[in-house]
């Protein structure tokens, strides 16, 4: 149980793919211009991580060390191509927007990094959980960045939601500011870098505050115990 809560914490916070490992920045920065794009790519990446981690873990005793990297690459490439075809068939509109970034999940280093550093050494269930939470951690950063950029850039949230959730979701777009002129920098690539930089800075401030609080409380409880 403790093991799993550690996996969750690692994926979502302490070892977050985007915040701490800073991997997979190419798709992260390129498709985070709206919330829906970010969510689409994030979920596709999560699905990839779960599938590759589970497969790699289940074959970890068969694959010999000297061929493990080519085998991992083969598995990742096949899984991503399968997801790409499936998205093209069932989420065609979203697929057209995410375009080249779906096949590029192959080049997201976090996928092979998790296969090599976690799934090849752990059981199937923990590997599944690791893939899921690493993916969700990545997705949450993508969506946060997407919300910041879409909010500042277009003055909306969740625009074009029907691409993902069907026509019923056409109306869930939230207009933050009506008649907004747009802040183009936020939508352009520099906006992605600045936004991610600010998010990482924010996380570091939070971590520092928490660490300071912990060191402040430890001596207090110790002295209380001594009394």
């Amino acid at each position: 149980m403790n093991h799993y809560s550690r996996i969750i914490k690692d994926g979502m916070w302490t070892n977050n793919v985007a915040f701490v490992q800073v991997l997979g920045l190419c798709p992260l920065l390129a498709v985070s211009n709206t919330v829906i794009n970010a969510l689409g790519l994030g979920l596709a990446t999560t699905l990839t991580l779960v599938a590759t981690n589970t497969i790699v873990s289940s074959i970890r005793h068969i694959v010999r060390p000297e061929i493990r990297i080519p085998v991992f690459v083969l598995i990742i490439a096949s899984v991503v191509t399968t997801i790409e075809l499936a998205m093209n068939a069932w989420f065609h509109e979203l697929y057209k927007i995410l375009g080249i970034f779906i096949p590029l999940i192959v080049t997201n280093c976090s996928v092979i990094a998790r296969a090599e550093s976690f799934a090849s050494k752990n059981g199937i269930a923990p590997s599944f959980a690791d893939g899921l939470f690493m993916g969700l951690g990545f997705t949450s950063v993508l969506v946060m960045l997407g919300a910041i950029r879409e909010g500042l850039g277009f003055g909306t949230l969740l625009q074009k939601a029907h691409l993902m959730f069907g026509d019923a979701a056409r109306d869930i777009q939230i207009t933050l500011i009506s008649d907004y002129q747009g802040f183009i920098l936020a939508i352009l690539p520099p906006g992605a870098f600045i936004g991610l930089g600010l998010l990482i800075a924010g996380k570091n401030i939070l971590d520092k505050k928490r660490a300071a609080r912990r060191t402040a409380t430890v001596p207090l409880t110790a002295s209380e115990a001594a009394q």
Partner: peptide
């Protein structure tokens, strides 16, 4: 043994992609 294993995985991977392609082709 390594070569056979690698070849086996290549066949499995390609098979998976081919199967998906066959089932999604018309829809796409």
């Amino acid at each position: 043994i390594s070569a056979i294993l690698l070849g086996l995985f290549a066949i499995l991977g390609t098979g998976l992609v081919a199967l998906t392609f066959k089932h999604t082709k018309d829809r796409i």
